[in-house]
Computed example of a mutant assay.
Amino acid sequence: MDPPPPVRPAGETSQTLDRGLRLLHLVADAPGGLTVTEAANRLGIGRAAVYRLVTPLAGHGMLRRDTDGRLRLGAGVLQLARRAQPLLAEGALPALRRLAEQAGATAHLTVVEGGEGVALAVVEPSWTSFHVAYRTGARHPLERGAAGQAILAGRTGAAGPVSTVGELQPGAYGVAAPVLGVPGLEASVGVVALAPLDTDAVGAQVLAAATAVAAALR
């Protein structure tokens, strides 16, 4: 019978977990990846300690080392993110329903995935004769459309609504605002319509919805 694994003090286990999570955040914030030395310097620990963190994280697919030996996020992080997406959508739906009915336009929650904006949840208004059909899962560059531009604005701390015309679909009008204050989430809430929108009134509604979504997801 194999001997039982050594029992680590609770404080040591918590410290290891904290360092592992901090390492994941550091790598996630480094587009070009991190060397072990860079990670050690930023964590304030030795290279050997970083290697001890990397081994189990790589085993679970959370980290990987590229051909240059730099640490990068692994596919396991994407798998966790995809499993969390239904929970995000569920939490956002009440605010999206209110927004769609108020604005008379298709409301959506857009999140960042792979450097693009992805429509995670879409709600259409119930009382309009015509509205934009916006497919859940639709992807677009962050630089195009109100949803992506709102996310980019949110990266600078700007919370105000963003409006665009015809950038993703000819003749479509969009207004969106970033979802701020939810750790690990880059997202926006917005509406899209076939007719011009009152940017002041709808902008206020979108901003209120984005605030409500952030509160629901914290």
Rank of each mutant, 00 (worst) to 15 (best):
Q85D: 15
V165K: 08
H60T: 09
S126C: 10
T55R: 11
V213K: 06
R97K: 13
G174W: 02
R98S: 13
D2K: 02
G61L: 04
V192E: 10
Q149M: 03
D66W: 12
G137M: 07
L23T: 10
T199N: 07
G160N: 05
Y134D: 05
Q15K: 05
P4G: 01
H60I: 02
P170K: 09
P9M: 00
L87D: 13
D68V: 01
A84Y: 15
A147C: 12
T211L: 01
Q205L: 14
V111G: 06
V54H: 07
G104V: 01
A138F: 15
P3C: 00
A146N: 03
L197W: 01
T164V: 07
V77W: 13
A209G: 13
V179W: 00
D68M: 03
G46N: 07
A39Y: 13
G76F: 14
L73Y: 11
R82S: 13
T106L: 10
D198E: 11
L93N: 03
P4S: 01
V191Q: 11
A39T: 11
A92T: 05
L93Y: 14
H140T: 01
G44F: 02
V132A: 08
D68Y: 09
A210I: 02
V206M: 08
L24F: 14
R65G: 06
M1Y: 06
G171M: 08
M62R: 06
A159N: 00
L168W: 09
R22H: 15
V54Y: 06
T16L: 13
Q79R: 15
L73C: 07
D2M: 03
T156M: 02
A150C: 03
H60L: 12
D66Q: 02
A216G: 02
L168H: 09
A159H: 01
W127Y: 14
T164H: 02
A216C: 04
T164C: 07
A49L: 06
A208L: 05
P3T: 13
L93D: 11
A95Q: 09
P170G: 03
A193N: 14
R52C: 00
G115Y: 06
R83M: 15
A201F: 10
L88I: 10
R144Y: 01
V189K: 06
V213L: 08
A100M: 07
A81Y: 14
A215L: 10
A214E: 03
L142T: 02
A100S: 11
V123G: 02
A159Q: 04
D68C: 02
V206N: 10
V191N: 07
L88D: 03
L185Q: 05
E90M: 07
R70D: 04
V50D: 04
A147F: 13
T128I: 00
A58P: 00
L180I: 06
A105G: 13
R72T: 14
D198L: 01
R83C: 10
G61K: 00
V162K: 01
V206D: 06
L63F: 05
L99M: 11
D200Q: 08
L142P: 04
A92D: 11
A84P: 00
A195D: 15
G203Q: 06
Y173V: 08
R83P: 00
D198V: 01
G114W: 05
G46H: 09
S126A: 15
